[in-house]
Design a protein around this nucleic acid. Sequence first.
DNA 1: CGATACTACTTGTCTATACAAGTATAGATG
DNA 2: CATCTATACTTGTATAGACAAGTAGTATCG
Lengths: 239, 239
Amino acid sequence: MSVSEQPFALFERIKKSIVNDIESGKLKQGDKIPSETELTRMFNTSRMTANRALKELTEEGRIVRAQGVGSFVARPKPEAALLEIKSIAKEIAEWGGYHSSEILVLREEKANGEIAKKMGLNSMDPVFHSIILHKDRDICVQHSERFINPKVAPDYLKQDFNTITPSEYLLEVAPVQQAEHIIEAMNCRKEIQKRLKIKPGEPCLSLTRRTWSFDMVATYSIIISPGSRYKLKGKFTRG
Amino acid sequence: MSVSEQPFALFERIKKSIVNDIESGKLKQGDKIPSETELTRMFNTSRMTANRALKELTEEGRIVRAQGVGSFVARPKPEAALLEIKSIAKEIAEWGGYHSSEILVLREEKANGEIAKKMGLNSMDPVFHSIILHKDRDICVQHSERFINPKVAPDYLKQDFNTITPSEYLLEVAPVQQAEHIIEAMNCRKEIQKRLKIKPGEPCLSLTRRTWSFDMVATYSIIISPGSRYKLKGKFTRG
DNA sequence: CGATACTACTTGTCTATACAAGTATAGATG
DNA sequence: CATCTATACTTGTATAGACAAGTAGTATCG
């Protein structure tokens, strides 16, 4: 018999068999896949098991199914070429493979009309503001600045950022519902140039993250030292 | 009876009921969820249906399950704060909300020792090389440069890039298995400065994408005009 | 010829049951 | 007291059957 004796569940073996046929070229894009009842006969199993195999392949984006018609090999959509950036802040914190130490530079509650307006607040309302410098072996590599809506995290300034990072704290008190990232190349402010020891004119990478939580906005902006590339690695979901 | 008469499948109603309990605070992080057999009684259904509801909630990251123990409300992991960048090339092509026109600047087959080595080729082997300029209303906003391993796409240079974009063509002939993105702020080469009409010293954003397909490498590098921010929008998967 | 009805086939959902495998706890045993 | 054991409970997988709903093609009727 060709049915191998692998130590896998049956539905896994059915999945693997179909994926093999796709990757070896036996089944091409748009080709019809054996129906559940056919698989039932081929693998001497029940329809529910064949159904599970095909359902999971659908979730993985390898096949598409149509009630009353059949199952077909999916075309590799551009959407399938999807990169997952897991926790950008974490990736940056682990820049260079080292856990960098942090220095709290500033922690204040202050009214700032322009920022407040961007957060949907009254221009006289105070906003929490923090700046943290990230060091990697005595060299400052990042400058992260946060503007927090006090309504999102009223106790933000009271936290001890030696025991909990701002990211972790904010994630705990305010579930992020939506986010927007802006990546930008820029010549940064003199104040930051000084802190990061950047020569004037050297291009910096800026990453701004705006998050929404219950209609409230927080912004998180990182300046990364020039020369330090920001590398994102990702596997594709269709792995 | 409290069981509502929504026009949904039963397993969907079970899922919704549990999600409601989590979001209303009735069930908190770490709390135990009714077991499959309990749900069987609560919803007057079979265990397979309850199992499907819990299985899908596990896939969605709302609960965690342990054989022999039970099912529990998952803690919102930082990993859940996951941004999906769909088809970076497409996002960039739609920069500013306009579909930009493309101009083919260069298309050649040439040996380039350094590049070839990075692709795992012999330094004398030829490499395909193409440069495309992206215009948006008469202003050049992007400069994209590709180095393609001829083994990946032997007919790459023969394509008519007016009818199919390089990205689309390559996706068709070579399924991408893994990718790496490097984002960098830089002062670009004079040759590119000229094409994009950038003043010397203006910081540019460079995005390099290396993809692997069957052990073979392709690189794709974009230079984006300064001032044009590269905005990524994404919804969180747990939304 | 054109419209309709029927049939065969597909996927989607659901039931009732079964056994395997992992865990926790109470109780018996040393 | 410590340790082993039986048991009850959990999830994971699998089976055999059922009906619903959607599709495509065929046969039939006007």
